[in-house]
Amino acid sequence: MTSGNGFNTRAVHAGQAPDPTTGAVIPPLYQTTTFAQDGIGQLRNGYEYGRGTNPTRDSLQAQLAALEGAEHAFSFSSGLAAEDALIRAALRPGDHIVLGNDAYGGTYRLINRVLGDWGITNSAVDMSDLDAVEKAVASGNTRMVWVETPSNPMMKITDIAAIAGVAKQAGAVLVVDNTFATPYLQQPLSFGADVVVHSTTKYIGGHSDASGGAVVLNDAELAEKIGFIQFAVGAVSAPMEAWLTTRGLKTLGVRMDRHSSNALAIAQWLTTREEVEQVYYPGLADHPGHELAARQMRGFGGMISVSFKGGEQAARTVAESTELFTLAESLGGIESLMNYPSEMTHASVKGTELAVPENLVRLSVGIEDVEDLIEDLDKAFARL
């Protein structure tokens, strides 16, 4: 680690010391499952077996902790694997989770269906409504409050500091999914959050070529429990995925600047279109969470959702008509993606209070030339 403390400096150098044997500036990829011992129980620098520890994963974890301003970070094979490990470490059967009423469908499925069978209960609430959150948390057995800000896909902004106060009073752990904002745009721990989670598959990896997830926190006792589950259950990030994610993290700041500037230009263009019912982007001055996002975030990110006056058919037509915006699951890569949440990323919440409007599409705005992206959208709109 260098003496520099700026975000981009930490992104490039944290956990990335040159290889001591060869002097390689980029630390090597340790593509190995096991490590030679100098005698029975005599480990070299603590390395024994890949499920437990691996130098490449250790480097990524050091990098993640540095960028979120935390003491501990754990890297997993996916965002949901990270979430599952956290919840099993922090909660017990009978405990209750309060989460946003437009949470990511996969997170809701995990909490409601998988962990529901384990005895975890949940309630969904509008996290931008502090009174509603206080009422939901006051149930008596709430042990975790789960926040996405900006939320997926409705782009709601939650006051992290205010929710942290509510959670603390109830003795609950506040978890913030920081996937959309990334540690470059937002630092939830500095606002009072207890734990940050990421799908590193998205912006942190940034190139749509490595799946992963992360849990980042300061609490040493909870960190020990998460570390044990990471080892004992084994849903760890593989060495190649960890190495690719580390590579992606080094350019996170410059990529997010471009994602954000492109998204703002596209959001402003969308507001001029008569086909559009509403644009959901916190960078727009008329967004309900704009002022809060401006205080809480360095920038407004690369995600936009848009609803159409023509209803479901209009949304489907646009989603299936673009060329540069690829119709696909996921988000956060350098390429632009188009998603129809109702049937794709959020299909698991259809028929619930978390259901996504059928006239809505979600854009993950990439780093291409913004003029080309707008032209692509314009041609798709011409088919309406």
Rank of each mutant, 00 (worst) to 15 (best):
T121G: 12
V137A: 14
S237R: 05
L373W: 02
A355Y: 12
Q186D: 02
V361K: 03
P282Y: 05
D194R: 00
Q37E: 07
D58M: 09
A319M: 11
N178C: 04
G105K: 00
H259P: 05
L43Y: 15
N8L: 10
V173Y: 03
G23M: 11
G41R: 13
G50R: 06
T179P: 00
K309V: 14
I120Q: 01
S139H: 14
L91I: 12
L331I: 14
G79H: 08
S260N: 10
D209N: 13
Q63H: 12
A82M: 06
E277W: 00
V279T: 11
E241V: 02
A172S: 11
V175W: 04
N122R: 14
S78Q: 09
I163F: 00
L185I: 04
P341I: 06
V195H: 03
S336W: 08
A82K: 03
T158S: 11
T182E: 00
A14I: 00
L284A: 14
R316T: 11
N5R: 15
E329Q: 14
H259G: 06
S211A: 13
T56S: 02
G46L: 10
V176W: 02
A103F: 09
S237M: 12
I204A: 01
K309M: 10
A170G: 05
T34L: 10
A81R: 01
H346C: 14
D177G: 06
E358K: 15
A355C: 13
P20L: 04
R258W: 04
P288K: 13
L115E: 07
R273M: 11
H290N: 12
G299H: 00
F325T: 08
A170D: 02
F74C: 06
L67D: 00
I163Y: 01
M338R: 06
G50H: 08
T345D: 14
L284C: 14
W118Q: 10
T245A: 05
Q313V: 11
T107E: 10
S336G: 13
P341G: 10
K156P: 01
D369A: 07
E68T: 01
V279C: 09
I97H: 09
